[in-house]
């Protein structure tokens, strides 16, 4: 029934409208990742560009292929596929065969997002689902790290990048160790100046701490992400590793190293903060962040792997519905307890 009198407008919530859309948030996140992406090209050369392109193409093509024709356009233009592919690509080593990066992008979107019902319905961070699949499937390729490219080597593409689908080609250069690998297996620390400037080996996007923080600050200022999540993750990692460091400085990494090494910054600022897979309530966000921080330190120090950010975030993603349930604010006027 349409109201004929235009003076009184009655409509259901939401009554306040914002300019903010999913597409806008995706664009913001991509802008925030731009500096660190460029730094990745600078540090690792053309190979990094190819790996990133492969994972983005894999993600976007999968989104296109499995979307019904009527929502295809809308799904492609919200930019979430591109962002997922970009985030996945930034967590891959530069030596990985391009077909694996492509497959990772496809798994991210297919198993990480579409199978749950699409954008906003997934339980786990799609990019991390893709990465977890790749590291369980191709553990060797996912842990072969190239050293930083030398000036003049920019256009050098690793032979291993160009392996035919389903095949592998031995990595052609000298492999390097990541700071966390050095810490775990040889107990060697890396100076924190190198960690901040990005003068280290590792995944494409986990080199320069400074640029990652810069992009994160941009997202915080745009209010795209909940500040509580990165702050609680970084603080809890610093505190937990600080306690271990205080008990035996020789055996454990110092807190500053723990925060800046490996994928913690990119995970804490860009992946854990995904609004779909993190708790909605402020109290929930703190629990979520502290849980991730604790798991990261536990896996890094006591686990079999040198790095634990990926599994820590995925595990806490799984706990998110539970956290939301227990931290729900009381409905106004109900269940009042006398104080």
């Amino acid at each position: 029934m349409k109201q004929k009198d235009p003076r009184l407008l009655v409509q259901p919530a939401p009554l306040l409208k914002q300019r903010m859309t999913a597409a806008q948030a995706m664009r913001d996140a991509s802008y925030a990742l731009l500096p660190v992406t460029l730094a990745g090209f600078w540090f690792f050369g053309l190979s990094a560009l190819l790996v990133l392109s492969a994972s983005i193409v894999g993600a976007v093509l999968t989104e296109w292929f499995f979307s019904p024709a009527d929502v295809r356009r809308e799904r492609l233009w919200d930019g979430s596929g591109i962002l997922t592919g970009l985030l996945l690509g930034l967590t891959l080593p530069t030596t990985i065969p391009l077909w694996m990066a492509f497959l990772g992008g496809a798994v991210s979107i297919g198993l990480g997002k579409l199978i749950w019902g699409g954008l906003g319905k997934n339980l786990f961070n799609p990019a991390l689902v893709g990465r977890a699949f790749l590291s369980a499937t191709f553990p060797n390729a996912m842990t072969t790290w190239a050293p930083l490219s030398q000036p003049g080597d920019f256009f050098h593409v690793h032979a291993s990048n160009l392996a035919l689908p389903f095949m592998h080609v031995e990595y052609d250069g000298i492999s390097a160790a990541t700071p966390l690998g050095l810490m775990k297996f040889d107990n060697e620390s890396t100076p924190w100046t190198d960690l901040i400037m990005g003068n280290i080996s590792g995944c494409i996007g986990e080199t320069s701490g400074l640029l990652l923080v810069l992009g994160g600050v941009y997202l915080l200022l745009r209010r795209d992400i909940d500040w509580r999540i990165p702050v609680s993750i970084l603080l809890s990692v610093a505190v937990f590793s600080g306690v271990l460091y205080a008990t035996a400085p020789g055996n454990y990494p110092d807190p500053l190293f723990s925060v800046f090494a490996g994928g913690l910054l990119i995970g804490a600022l860009y992946m854990a903060t995904d609004p779909v897979t993190s708790p909605l309530t402020p109290r929930g966000a703190w629990i979520f962040g502290i849980g991730i921080g604790l798991l990261v330190v536990l896996i890094r120090v006591y686990g079999g792997f040198p790095e634990g950010v990926m599994y820590a975030i995925l595990l806490m993603n799984a706990a998110t519905p539970l956290i939301d349930r227990y931290t729900q604010p009381r409905v106004f006027g109900r269940g009042v307890k006398s104080r």
């Binding site: 065969p97 699949f133 369980a136 499937t137 191709f138 390729a141 389903f166 095949m167 592998h168 080609v169």
Partner: peptide
């Protein structure tokens, strides 16, 4: 697929 096949360990 021959010796160069990369097994999907998962």
């Amino acid at each position: 697929f021959g010796a160069d096949f990369e097994p999907w360990i998962i």
